[in-house]
Computed example of a mutant assay.
Amino acid sequence: MKILIVEDDTETANYLTRGLREAGWEVTWHNAPQEAMLTLAGRSFDAIVLDRMLPGMDGVDALRLMRGAKITTPILMLTARSGLEDRVEGLEAGADDYLVKPFAMSELVARLRSLARRPPMAVKATNLHLGDLHLDRISRQAMRGGDRLDLSPLEYRLLDYLIQRPGEVVTRSMLLEQVWGYRFDPKTSLVQTHMSRLRAKVDKPYAQEMIRTIRGAGYVIDAP
């Protein structure tokens, strides 16, 4: 396999390069995402190992640029940040897998092999529209009727998930799993609270609402 590493720490990069080459793979290393983008413009790889903390550009921003440039190569993100919000943000931005430092080389190799076996990912649209609602998935900005909506990162992820499913009932369980990354029900009003805040920004200032509550089922978003 051909692996591209984007990692600014030389010691970590050397460890990765040595371990992956011992697995029999061809490895290319760059310490900055800008250099990696130039290489990706002319070469193909089986997988990319992308560090979260990079000089001059956050790894998540680099990830969005890659996906915005229609790069569909599987991407595994490395990070020292193990918080749920960090993992969800990386996955929502287009990462295929997430590995927290410190890690065992054997696990990294196994994860990369697993990614390489997956079918090629579909290219995600970088702009989503529903009626007068618009999401720019590169800048992560939302607008309605020409007005910019001041959304928190979590509110943006909620809206992004909804707008991809117009007219469909999205359940509380679906939101907990796909937006928060929970595999269990925390038995709180977490979803209701954040949905209420989102609707106050998306719907309240406008004549027609787009997000509706379906009592006992979930939420639906439709064009006004």
Rank of each mutant, 00 (worst) to 15 (best):
P186K: 10
G59Q: 04
S106Q: 12
Q34T: 12
E155K: 04
R157S: 14
N14R: 13
A95P: 06
A110F: 00
P186L: 09
A69Q: 12
L65A: 05
L78P: 01
L135P: 00
R113E: 14
G42M: 08
V6H: 07
A217L: 14
M143Y: 14
S189D: 14
L115K: 06
A95K: 10
V27I: 13
P153A: 13
R137D: 05
T193E: 08
E92N: 15
R199S: 11
G56L: 12
Y15P: 00
D203N: 09
Y182K: 12
A122L: 10
P102K: 15
F184E: 08
D132L: 06
R199Q: 15
V60P: 00
D46T: 06
L198I: 08
P224N: 13
A116D: 03
G83R: 05
S106T: 15
A80R: 10
V202W: 01
L20I: 05
G68C: 05
R183E: 08
D96G: 07
P205Q: 13
R199A: 13
T39E: 09
R18E: 14
A93H: 01
V202A: 04
Q34S: 12
R157G: 06
G56N: 13
H129V: 00
G146A: 09
A32K: 11
L4K: 04
T126W: 00
A207S: 11
K124V: 06
E177R: 15
I211G: 04
P33N: 10
L99T: 04
K2Y: 02
A41K: 13
N31W: 02
D147M: 12
E89Y: 01
P33R: 10
R212S: 13
L91G: 02
R144F: 06
D51P: 05
M53Y: 10
I138N: 01
M174A: 15
G19F: 11
L162N: 08
Y98Q: 01
S139E: 05
G56W: 14
M121D: 10
I3T: 12
T171R: 08
R212F: 07
Y206G: 02
D203W: 04
T171Y: 03
